[in-house]
Amino acid sequence: MYSFNQRTDTVVIDEPFYPIWLKRIGKVQPHYDEIMLSSQNIDANKIHDKIEEMEKMKGNIFVKNMANTVKDMNKNRILNYRPIFLVRNPAEVIVSHIKLDQSITGEDLCFEHQVKLYDWFQEQTKEDPLVINANELIKDPKSILTGLCDKLNLPFTNEMLSWPAGPKPIDGVWASAWYNAVHQSTGFGQPSSTKLTRDDVPSEFLALYDEVLPYYHKILSHSFLD
């Protein structure tokens, strides 16, 4: 999200459907009251309208979403979008997520949602959606982003490789809880010397890890560089 925000020809919006999802599942997460207050009287079609209006500002729009919010979108309208799936090792996702939310389920982790959404887009458009391996992106962001931009028919720019530290105007109201690490960053950073595995997942979350692992492997198999 921060990478695409550096492009002068692109406007960015942060998880616009998250408040609707949060209200639907009834789960209290950080900044819940503030999120609900900021999203009163909002519905999916109004969000799609906003996306289309913002796109006209610069010509392109990058919308960061979680795959579990697709139920809250208008599927006819998202067929106009180009989906990009960013896939991360579930051990890393779980270990990171439980620092803020110990009540996580497969619904929160989105791996099954990603697979179902990928298959649906493929069936509807007869094209393969774009899938990026997060670890490969961190290893060589210039190559991955160059390949991604080429597939999106956009020119790659070096500005996409770095950004200023700190909060951004595009951040959702939940940013202070979830974005601490990225707020300290000024780029993609260096890959970790150690790769988290099942052994690093706390025992109480091992069943969840085992549940989502097959979906992770399935969506990762579609990575355009794997």
Rank of each mutant, 00 (worst) to 15 (best):
M1H: 13
S3P: 08
S3I: 04
F4C: 06
F4M: 11
N5L: 10
D9V: 05
T10N: 10
T10S: 09
T10C: 15
V11T: 10
D14F: 07
P16C: 09
K23R: 10
I25L: 03
G26K: 11
K27V: 12
H31N: 14
M36Y: 10
L37R: 14
N41T: 11
N41H: 14
A44G: 12
K46G: 05
K46Y: 07
K46F: 09
H48F: 07
K50R: 06
E52G: 04
E53A: 10
M54H: 03
M57Q: 13
F62D: 09
F62K: 11
K64S: 09
K64G: 07
N65F: 08
K71M: 12
R77T: 08
L79P: 02
V87R: 03
R88P: 00
N89A: 13
P90W: 01
A91P: 08
A91K: 11
E92M: 02
V95Y: 06
V95F: 02
V95K: 14
S96E: 02
S96H: 09
H97Y: 03
I98K: 00
K99T: 11
L100V: 09
L100F: 09
L100W: 05
T105I: 10
G106V: 07
L109S: 00
E112A: 09
H113T: 06
Q114C: 15
Q114P: 07
Q114V: 12
L117V: 10
L117I: 11
Y118D: 02
D119G: 03
W120K: 02
Q122R: 15
Q122P: 01
E123Q: 15
Q124A: 08
T125Y: 06
K126C: 09
K126Q: 15
D128T: 13
V131N: 04
I132W: 02
A134N: 15
A134S: 15
N135A: 11
E136Q: 13
I138D: 04
K139M: 14
S143G: 13
L145V: 10
D150M: 05
N153T: 08
N153Y: 13
L154M: 15
N158S: 11
N158Y: 05
W163Y: 03
W163I: 03
P164H: 11
P164E: 14
A165N: 06
K168A: 09
K168V: 07
P169I: 10
G172K: 04
W174D: 15
A177C: 05
V182M: 09
Q184F: 00
Q184G: 13
S185A: 14
G187D: 03
G187N: 01
F188C: 04
G189V: 06
Q190N: 12
Q190I: 12
L196V: 06
L196D: 12
T197L: 08
D200T: 02
V201C: 04
P202E: 14
P202Y: 11
S203C: 00
E204C: 10
F205R: 01
L208S: 05
L208C: 07
L208M: 08
L208Q: 04
Y209M: 06
D210Y: 05
D210T: 08
E211G: 00
L213H: 12
P214M: 06
Y215S: 15
Y216R: 06
K218T: 06
I219V: 12
S221P: 00
H222S: 07
S223L: 00
F224V: 11
L225D: 07
D226Y: 04
